[in-house]
């Protein structure tokens, strides 16, 4: 029999083996993140190309303010730290630690999205920078809007995991569920680490 000749040491058919010492779901998240790099690279390129296109309406120096966006940056950095602590708790089987840090992470996500909603509303109503006012506005809102959408999706994801953790459904053996969400969350954070200086500080400081 051919197949038997190919495999003289047949092992338990139920056990999933992976060729690399990394779970497939985690590898897939990394592959997705690699792909997202190009997504945000395109959005950032467009912003950098169009940031001076504001013959009509206000430009970057008229609308951007450092304090608010620094607060947002701090919140996202905080949340990266929080989620890594939550993951640590999940891996150690420390439910209290997991719940404490994970709920703080979700709170940060909500706060960041709220900050962005406030920022956009402020720009539109008080600075009169509508979505289609000029190309600076369109490319800025599109870039940060898609980043904000990523934050919102991540917040939703982490919130469902918080619910699971609350019900005790994330034992150490299932910490991978949180680890994958955390990878995504950190990626969203590093994108903001690029956006903060390139979009805000460099547009202001010229």
């Amino acid at each position: 029999m051919t197949t038997a000749a190919l495999d003289l040491h047949a092992h338990d058919a139920g056990a999933h083996h992976t060729s690399m010492p990394v779970p497939s779901r985690k590898l897939a998240m990394w592959v997705f993140i690699a792909s997202e790099c190009m997504f945000f690279a395109t959005l950032i390129s467009t912003f950098v190309i169009y940031r001076d296109s504001h013959a009509k309406g206000p430009g970057p120096k008229d609308v951007f303010g450092v304090p608010l966006v620094t607060a947002g940056t701090a919140v996202l950095l905080f949340s990266s730290f929080f989620v890594v602590m939550a993951l640590n708790g999940a891996q150690q089987g420390d439910r209290k630690k997991l719940l404490r840090w994970l709920s703080l992470t979700v709170l940060c996500g909500v706060f960041f999205v709220g900050m962005q909603v406030y920022e956009f509303t402020h720009f539109v109503t008080e600075k009169h920078l509508g979505y289609t006012t000029n190309l600076f506005a369109s490319s800025f809102y599109t870039l940060t809007g898609f980043h904000g959408t990523h934050v919102a999706v991540g917040t939703l994801w982490l919130a469902t995991l918080l619910k699971d953790a609350w019900k005790g459904r994330i034992p150490p053996a299932k910490a991978l569920n949180l680890e994958i969400a955390a990878l995504y969350w950190h990626f969203v954070d590093v994108v903001w680490i690029i956006i903060f200086p390139v979009v805000y500080l460099m547009s202001l400081g010229r």
């Binding site: 997202e36 997504f39 395109t42 959005l43 467009t46 169009y50 289609t132 369109s138 490319s139 599109t142």
Partner: peptide
């Protein structure tokens, strides 16, 4: 594909939401 995704988003915004990318 992420690059064409963004380009198509811009084109869609131009056509549907009145931007001028």
């Amino acid at each position: 594909f992420p690059v064409i995704t963004v380009a198509l988003i811009y084109l869609m915004l131009d056509r549907t939401f009145g931007t001028s990318f």
